[in-house]
Design a protein around this nucleic acid. Structure first.
Length: 564
DNA sequence: CTGGGGATGGGGCCC
DNA sequence: TGGGCCCCATCCCCA
């Protein structure tokens, strides 16, 4: 490897993330390098600003705001979070440092509340899913409580706030952000929800603020419906009481509405017009895509929510008493339960094979009847399943939309890419640095081979926790913002917390994140001004392709250098 | 290791 | 609300 290769070789260390977390957790337990102490009702939790900024949107915004003061993360800080129950805070910290959330069911609500307050989306989602039904029951009361809180709440004193240092309040704007941030602590305002914050004299102690409740599914539904009905103003205008409060509450558990690529920096000013970005565009924060790995389910919800044409079916999620999993869809719980009981009530009359589901039996029966209802239009092949046909069709088209970002090998199927990624061949190939171009062109860059980065990167999307450590803007590269928003935003507060997190991760940490790796290439190439949309197109896909091509061109150039 | 077929479980839509 | 049907993601197995 030549010196010029820095940043180009991505050698994944799958265990690194875990080890890193483990070490950080050790440091936390021993207080080593801890530069932030969270307190809750007397309990103190030493932690690391970088970690908290990486895992929590709340802190990300908070520290991003503070960076402007030159604090640089060097000052020892105390953040009083009395609004988060100590047990919940403890659980959330455990999650942050271990990727595992361990909580008693009785404490679920507190954890949910804390996750919402701190902007830990995946935890909030998980808790909310589990609490879905019961939260509904409390919805009305909680709503009233929040409305009352909003009317009466006031800022917690700065001495309880984030920085106990002597940082001057030179920037009223920034102070205001922190203030609204504290409202968040009580009324669940987002740190940047300034348009609807209620700055008030810092008189009340944060401890005096009653605890808050997470929004119920009904509230979310109401909110969603409002959005769907185009009634955006109703929930955006300040001073709308409960409805406004609902909007405030929504900021942290904003789910991805759709899989379409979030706009890059160049289109951020359009965010406010986008349904999914509503309420955040004015902050320039890409919030609607906070969630990380959009599951198929989430994408489904997203589609129905934004598609406009489809109504969002009111589904009452049911919780599996065995695995606690929330099963969506009416009548789906019995079906799910059979996966636990092993009950297979549907038996094939021909061969006696039993199935847990009758639709599977029906498909199975096609074997006996010879029915293959999915014929390939290009060849005589016929298939039992539609997805088999889909897979098969990729053979005809030659499309290999799933490409390994490390070795650039392209696959026709996502699961094959995943399998490839799990193995070591990828690492091996990449280390050898085979010639790229022609091979790739044959494999996946043909007509249909215009790689679908959306799928490709999405397939490589990080595990939930790891993703939670990535800045949303970066994570969203997987779902399409890959329009090439730069990894860092010079002068942008978003970058600072993220950089801090990266610093904590170290260079190897980056290698563990494929899409990050790609973006690092871009940065390294001195393309920070990418945000200016140099390609002249605002098409996310076009931009992404353009961007990826340039990255590869860059690789090619460096290979040439290497040969020299 | 890769390509391909099949199995499994979950969610959405519809009745 | 339950269930049928379908699609999807993922996993497993085999050549």
């Amino acid at each position: 490897m030549s010196p010029g290769e820095d940043g180009l070789i991505g050698i994944p260390f799958p265990e690194h993330s875990n080890e890193l977390l483990s070490h950080l957790n050790d440091q936390r337990r021993t207080g080593l390098l801890c530069d932030l102490t969270l307190t809750s009702r007397g309990a103190r939790y030493p932690t690391h600003r970088s970690v908290m900024a990486a895992v929590s949107l709340y802190f990300r915004r908070l520290f991003g705001t503070e960076e402007g003061h030159g604090e640089g993360g060097g000052g020892f800080s105390v953040c009083q979070l009395d609004c988060v129950a100590p047990d919940a805070l403890d659980a959330l910290l455990e999650f942050a440092y271990t990727a595992t959330l361990t909580i008693p069911s009785s404490g679920m609500r507190d954890v949910l509340r804390g996750a919402q307050l701190l902007g830990i989306q995946c935890v909030a989602d998980a808790c909310r899913d589990i609490l879905g039904e019961t939260a509904e029951a409390e919805g009305e009361t909680a709503e009233k409580q929040r409305a009352q809180h909003l009317a009466t709440e006031s800022m917690a004193g700065r001495e309880t706030g984030v920085e106990k240092g002597s940082r001057r309040k030179t920037d009223r704007k920034k102070v205001k952000k922190v203030e609204s941030h504290h409202i968040n602590s009580s009324g669940l305002n987002p740190p940047h929800a300034s348009p609807i914050s209620h700055p008030s004299p810092a008189s009340d102690s944060i401890r005096s603020l009653p605890s808050t409740q997470p929004p119920s599914p009904e509230q979310e539904e109401h909110h969603l419906n409002s959005r769907q009905n185009g009634d955006h103003r109703a929930i955006r205008e300040p001073g709308r009481g409960a409805a406004l409060n609902g909007e405030l509450l929504h900021w942290l558990h904003e789910r991805p509405r759709i899989a379409h690529p979030p706009p890059g920096p160049t289109s951020s000013d359009k965010l406010s017009e986008d349904d999914e970005m509503e309420g955040f565009g004015d902050n320039g924060m890409i919030m609607g895509t906070t969630s990380i790995t959009t599951s198929a389910a989430e994408r489904g919800v997203a589609t129905s929510a934004v598609g406009g044409g489809r109504k969002r079916k009111s589904q009452t999620p049911q919780q599996c008493p065995v695995c606690q999993k929330i099963i969506h869809g009416a009548g789906k719980l019995p079906r799910h339960m059979r996966t636990h009981t092993g009950e297979k009530p549907f038996q094939c009359s021909a061969c006696g094979v039993r199935f847990t589901r009758n639709d599977k039996l029906k498909i199975h029966m096609r074997k006996h009847t010879g029915e293959r209802p999915y014929p390939c239009p290009h060849c005589p092949a016929r298939f039992l399943h539609s997805y088999d046909l889909k897979n098969h069709l990729s053979l005809h088209s030659g499309a290999r939309p799933f490409e390994c970002p490390l070795c650039h090998k392209a696959f026709a199927r996502e699961d094959h890419l995943q399998r490839h990624r799990k193995g070591h061949s990828c690492l091996e190939l990449r280390t050898r640095r085979p010639r790229r171009g022609p091979e790739l062109m044959e494999d996946g860059r043909g007509e249909g081979g215009r790689r679908d980065q959306s799928n490709s990167l999405e397939a490589l999307s990080l595990q939930a926790h790891s993703s939670a450590f990535l800045h949303p803007t970066v994570r969203d590269g997987g779902s399409g913002s890959g329009a090439g928003p730069p990894l860092m935003f010079p002068g942008d507060e978003r970058s600072l917390a993220f950089q801090a997190a990266l610093a904590q991760l170290g260079p190897h940490g980056l290698a563990a994140y494929p899409d990050l790796f790609l973006r690092r290439l871009e940065l390294r190439g001195g393309r920070e001004e990418e945000g200016e949309d140099p390609g002249g197109t605002h098409s996310p896909t076009a931009q992404r392709d353009h961007w990826v091509d340039e990255v590869e061109d860059e690789n090619g150039e460096e290979e040439a250098e290497e040969e020299e």
